[in-house]
Simulated scan of single mutants.
Amino acid sequence: MDDTLEDILIWQPAKSGKYTAKEGYNAIVQMQEGINAEQNLLWEGIWKNKIILPRIKFFLWRLINKGLPMAVHMHSRFPNFSPMCQRCYEDNEFDMHCLFFCENSRQVWFASTLGLKVNELPLQIGEALKQIMEVLDDYGIQLFTATVWEVWKERNKAVIEHTVFKPTEVLKRVQAITTPITMDPIQTLPVQHIDEGQEVHDIYENGWQVVMDASWDTNNRAGCAYIVYDGGLLHSVGMHSEPLNDPFMAEAKTLQESINYMVEKIGVSHITRTQFFSDCNNLVQAVNNCDIEQLPSWRARGLVNDIIKMMEDMQLTATLHYAHRDAVQQAHVLANLARRKNMQLSGQLHWQLQQEEEIRDVIDARFFQRVQQAPP
């Protein structure tokens, strides 16, 4: 044996021993040949569905292909690893038990608005998913897939961190996912880094979104409010009242406060995508065009100029969009509350608002709907 020869890497599936993208694709195709044709159809239907979030699609792909680290899968690789469900200790933890049959998971489905009868589901995960999704409309599919995803996340938290599985928390997070930010009808000003032809829902899929509005009366009292979403999920709420000279000043002040909150409290940077939405077209035009000469209020020149500089500091990742009044209605009602009742909240996290019934009902009644009916 010649000791002078160096070791080399060889890609065994390829005749040449060299890996290429084509050889990798062919290997994957060969691996998939044994998969049931119906399962392939199920996966294709999930992949092409525009309602299901991308991260949930990836999770479902792993689920269908037995790629999740459930106890029975771990046991097959590490015999000393117990195949039992670490939540109920009543059965082995395979995919259907984990997501549907375990008592904790049953509690979620019992309280869900889907009305899913867990006892009637087949034992095979692919058949179960196909049977359920075939009878659901788009919203139902979104709700169902989000629930499966959140059950899995809560299971991981319970098993890995040794916490109590909380069905109510699962339902709250599902509601947050399936209750997207109300942005229809919406018009956005042309922004150079948003690709031409990009759909509106694509714009909100990642990053931060801040919806704002102001309320002003002839006593020079103004209310300002902003609602912050993280990838379309409700994150926090800010609102306050103060004396301002005119309604345009109130709108500008609201934008300034929301930018300050995102930079100082959230900590967004020039690499974090942040979108601000206002129904004040004059303000949006002035900031986007860096033009303070045509403002409806001369008092606001200095304030708007400061806002322009703040947006520039955030570079191209921060954009300001014009939205119809319907799209900022929730922020408008909160601004009215702040003006009339002198309410002050500086970026209050959504889960801290549970006792604030007026605010809770305004932001999103569905998101904060009572889930205490779920079994403990």
Score class of each variant (00 low, 15 high):
Asp7Lys: 10
Asp7Asn: 11
Ile10Met: 10
Ala14Glu: 04
Gly17Gln: 02
Ala21Ser: 11
Val29Trp: 06
Met31Cys: 13
Gly34Ala: 04
Gln39Tyr: 12
Leu41His: 12
Leu42Tyr: 12
Lys50Ala: 14
Ile51Tyr: 14
Leu53His: 05
Ile56Gly: 01
Ile56Cys: 00
Phe59Thr: 02
Phe59Arg: 06
Leu60Asp: 09
Leu60Trp: 11
Leu68Ser: 06
Met70Asp: 06
Ala71Thr: 04
Val72Arg: 07
Phe81Met: 11
Phe81Tyr: 12
Ser82Arg: 01
Pro83Ala: 02
Met84Asp: 06
Arg87Pro: 04
Tyr89Lys: 12
Glu90Arg: 13
Glu90Gly: 10
Asn92Trp: 09
Glu93Pro: 05
Phe100Pro: 04
Glu103Pro: 08
Val108Ser: 03
Val108Glu: 02
Trp109Asp: 01
Ser112Val: 05
Gly115Thr: 05
Val118Glu: 04
Val118Asp: 04
Leu121Thr: 10
Ile125Glu: 00
Gly126Met: 09
Gly140Asp: 09
Ile141Phe: 10
Ile141Cys: 13
Leu143Asp: 06
Val151Trp: 00
Val151Ile: 07
Glu154Ser: 03
Asn156Leu: 01
Ala158Ser: 11
Ile160Cys: 11
His162Lys: 15
Val164Ser: 12
Lys166Ala: 07
Lys166Phe: 06
Pro167Ala: 03
Thr178Cys: 10
Thr178Leu: 04
Ile181Gly: 05
Met183Val: 13
Met183Ala: 11
Gln187Val: 12
Thr188Asp: 03
Leu189Arg: 07
Leu189Tyr: 06
Val191Gln: 15
Gln192Glu: 15
Asp195Gln: 15
Glu196Lys: 14
Gln198Pro: 04
Glu199Trp: 11
Glu199Lys: 14
Val200Asp: 15
His201Ser: 14
Ile203Met: 09
Asn206Phe: 13
Gly207Ile: 00
Gln209Trp: 03
Val211Leu: 08
Val211Phe: 03
Met212Glu: 00
Asp213Phe: 01
Trp216Ala: 01
Thr218Gly: 14
Asn219Met: 14
Arg221Phe: 02
Ala225Ile: 00
Ile227His: 02
Leu233Cys: 09
His235Gly: 00
Met239Val: 02
His240Ala: 07
Pro243Val: 02
Leu244Gln: 09
Phe248Val: 01
Lys253Ser: 13
Lys253Asn: 14
Val263Gly: 08
Gly267Ala: 11
Val268Pro: 00
Ile271Met: 14
Thr272Gln: 10
Thr274Met: 12
Gln275Cys: 09
Ser278Met: 02
Asn281Leu: 14
Asn282Pro: 10
Val284Asp: 01
Val287Thr: 00
Trp298Ile: 15
Arg299Ile: 14
Leu303Arg: 07
Asp306Ala: 15
Ile308Gly: 04
Met314His: 10
Thr319Glu: 13
Tyr322Pro: 01
Ala323Asn: 12
Asp326Leu: 01
Ala327Ile: 02
Ala327Met: 05
Gln329Tyr: 13
Gln330Ser: 12
Val333His: 06
Asn336His: 09
Leu337Gly: 03
Arg339Pro: 01
Arg340Lys: 12
Met343Val: 11
Met343Asp: 04
Met343Lys: 10
Leu345Asn: 03
Leu345Pro: 05
Ser346Cys: 12
His350Ala: 08
Gln352Trp: 11
Gln354Ile: 08
Asp364Asn: 14
Asp364Lys: 09
Ala365Val: 08
Phe367Ser: 14
Gln369Tyr: 09
Val371Ile: 07
Gln373Tyr: 14
Pro376Asn: 09
